[in-house]
Design a binder for these strands. Sequence first.
RNA 1: GACCCGUUCGUCUAUCGGUUAGGACUCCAGAUUUUCAUUCUGGCAAGAAGGGUUCGACUCCCUUACGGGUCGCCA
Length: 436
Amino acid sequence: MTVRTRFAPSPTGYLHVGGARTALFNWLFARKHGGTFLLRVEDTDEARNTDAAKQAIFDGLLWLGLDWDEGPDRGGNHGPYFQSERKPVYDAWFDKLVTAGRVYQDDGAWRFRFDRKQMTMQDLVCGEVIIDYRDESNTPDMVVKRSDGSYVFHFVNVVDDLEMEITHVIRGEDHLMNTPKHLQLIEALGGSPPQYAHLPLILNPDGSKMSKRDAGAAVDDYPRQGFLPGAVVNFIALLGWSPKTDQEIFSLEELADRFALENVNRAPARFDFEKCKWVNQQHLVALSPGDFSVAAEPFVRAAGLPVPDHFTAVAAAVKDKVRLLEEVPTAVDFLLHDAFSYDEETVTKARANPAVNELLETLAQQFDTLSDWSGDGAKAALNETAKTASIKPGPLMFALRVALSGRAHGPDLGEILNILGQNRSTARVRQFSKML
RNA sequence: GACCCGUUCGUCUAUCGGUUAGGACUCCAGAUUUUCAUUCUGGCAAGAAGGGUUCGACUCCCUUACGGGUCGCCA
């Protein structure tokens, strides 16, 4: 049996991290077992569907790297993949229910008559779950076809899973109580049920339900802030699933390799944005300087900063220091143009030592005389200058950093000197000397 | 309210009947460093409560509490 999983979003809003994780687990499970992952759009609610939402979901999945084997823009033998285009299919299956005498009319709508018995299901995550359908007050017969002739979610969802030969339904825990309904429908339709796995939901840091406007909820916010798709996927995979090792940083391929539904937790997990950023940092560190540069460039351009030929070197100087790509522009602006600003507090701190202040012009002159400029050479000149004046090189180093960057922290001083070059470095030292 | 799922450091988790209950994020301290950061080392911090079962329970059972989910002609 070939594994076939699906992600079936309804295009009524943006892709939510919860939905993204559901899609991810379906994708991972399919990849792990050499199966097929398909995307089906449940657009039966015409009033709430929008093209923008549909596009946002596609874009979000693609950005995360969760490509589908069958579905919109990709085709397949089980289409169409938009429920709005499948009316004839549903009509045919609905007739089976009528023929079998399992539906009856009520106010113009058609209700499905449940078999009044105890329902037992084997959930791949929750284990055995028993729900008693003998109690009619708790489980009233459900509407499957509305009075306007359209079909409700439960019906189309089940029919499509049958038609598309879905073997494993991996979905949010909010569907757990729907499962016996689906099982009954499948039974009445004469189909064989897929295996189910219900994922616990993702909660806010305070334990409340995560909704659209909560931080971290919308997937399209992540690329804007400078998260790498691999990092987001890595982080949400660890929310409710454990690889059973101490390793925390994984590529999509590694995740697919290790994924197992048995290792999905039963308890809902809270979303920790701090850790999500840490994971992103780990992925940024793992990038090559070239790849990091390519990823960072759009953020620098968006900030209105110039992008020179040697931008890769500039980006590399801060690669291991940022957690989000959106931090890059402010981290490198002094390396890209002369119009950067000096941090007042830091300047005051740098001015504290008069002996150092007096040496700045001397240092500039030393820089002038260097015939073969390099960060190391410049540092050596600084050490010489300090030694001659009988002061420690440390404070002078700090003053130099402030003169060059306007702030107290940043990349290695040698790297800064290399990137800035002799003329710019010397000019900044001189300018800073005059500021004092 | 009824029904279902759950409950290990603040958070994500490992351990699945016998462990000093392990790792990671955060936080704190120390080291390194030209300052900050990074990095490294160390530290703080947990089995919801009460009953069983057992030689022995975080691990199994029951009860309570708490959290989440579901009870639509939404999906």
